[in-house]
Design a protein around this nucleic acid. Structure first.
Lengths: 261, 261
DNA sequence: GAGAGACACG
DNA sequence: CGTGTCTCTC
């Protein structure tokens, strides 16, 4: 089979940035684009424009916050929205589909606000619940990709000042432990299989002047895969150029290419 | 002396449209631009950008509403802000200066909301008070221009459906009478000395789709002058093209050119 | 800093 | 419809 490229992108309002996204997709020709923070309720989702561009699309949104979507060249099957069987999945943070024999789970993990806040505990619970989610549905020998805005930089290499920022939301030992537990179920970090240098970030705070040029970013968006899919990955990268647009999202797309078995 | 061009423009937020205004001024090279609805308090007025473009500027604003300014190639003298000696001039609606021996009074007359409202009576009082303003300060034989957003279309020719709209705010007999009283002090409508055709408007409601193309406008912005200045006027017009910008004001600039005596 | 929403205004 | 205000979120 031909190369199969999967992208994860926190778009920070699909209505503001859909034109820019479609132009970028036209250039880069990805197979699957997983979006977070679409920030639009389903009635207002710009479905027609995506269909006209020749893609399938599935989505689950809320008014003004959260919101996830999967745009795909190939027909998505076995669509799942939300966790089911879990009391705290009233937010639009998880959407999943089987595309070309590979199950793609796209999540927007809660940001967490501040350690010691209720929101932070919610984030930890949310991450912990993902282990149940995968264990109940899949086997580590399945072709499963877990992608999205995880709102966690897992390693020192994934953040611009690990010493100073340790303990902050997004780079906190409790988050690292929670995420490691899910990873231990059977995931590999596809990006790090190919790119081992630092200063490869997917998020730069709007409030820090010239953060991109100054290298003041975080790698908090991820593409993780089970061993059988990771084995077939051939490349990965971050489309940093999109973060330099006139009106950019605060995130850049992360992508990985596979030769699907 | 060379030609002297005076412009009146309700800019509907100078912060949003200053770049567009300066580009237009660069093309058209006016001597004086009188603005209304700058919608910015004096601390936030973009003075430096105007000075850098080679103009003088005087202004009086409020937070979020009203606000008047005069941009001028030539040094403004005898600057007056507000009516003085009148109880109801706490709003930023009047600014005046002597520029090249001609006194220019730039006003943003209250919109009036609805006939029978208190705001409508305020508008009528405001207009009536302008007669005192001129009588106390000038003589009809002086070189005086009264320009601005008058929020009144004086004649049937100044509105797209005079029969239907008669009695609405902006085209009401009481407004016509009030304005006529001030005019009788000694003003001529400079624009109408040169342009006698209809469909020459300065305002098109944002809420009416394609109002400009469909000719659904009002001529409510004016350049009036005393006889000695009117006699030296050589041309006038409306810069309708600016109303077709990507993010236009709901008004277009009105201009008049003089060979000053 | 930049999205969202809601409200006031013309 | 398109300005402004303010509050909320990340």
């Amino acid at each position: 089979m031909a190369a199969f490229t999967v992208v994860s992108y926190n778009i920070n309002s699909i209505r503001v940035r859909l034109d820019s996204l479609l132009a970028w997709m036209h250039k880069t020709n990805p197979d699957v684009v997983c979006l977070q923070e679409t920030k639009v309720q389903d009635n207002d989702f710009p479905e027609q424009q995506i269909l006209s561009a020749g893609y399938h699309v599935i989505y689950k949104g809320e008014k003004s916050r959260n919101g996830v979507a999967i745009i795909s060249k190939h027909l998505p099957n076995d669509i799942q929205i939300g966790h089911n069987n879990w009391g705290r999945d009233n937010e639009a943070r998880l959407i999943s589909a089987k595309i070309c024999n590979c199950t793609i789970v796209n999540t927007y993990i809660p940001q967490g606000q501040e350690p010691n806040s209720d929101y932070f505990q919610y984030k930890l619970d949310w991450i912990a619940h993902m282990q149940n989610y995968f264990a109940e549905r899949f086997n580590p020998s399945d072709l499963v990709l877990w992608v999205g805005d995880f709102n966690v930089a897992p390693e020192p290499l994934d953040i611009y000042d690990p010493a100073r920022l340790l303990g902050r939301v997004g780079y906190h030992p409790d988050e690292h432990a929670a995420l490691q537990n899910v990873k231990a179920w059977g995931f590999l970090d596809i990006f790090r299989q190919h790119i081992t240098e630092g200063n490869n970030y997917t998020f730069w705070d709007y409030r820090i002047k010239n953060a991109v040029d100054r290298g003041l970013g975080w790698r908090i968006d991820h593409i993780w895969g089970t061993e059988p899919i990771a084995r077939h990955s051939v490349n990965a990268g971050i489309a940093k150029d999109l973060r330099r647009d006139l009106r950019p999202s605060d995130h850049a797309p992360i992508w990985a290419t596979f030769n699907l078995p």
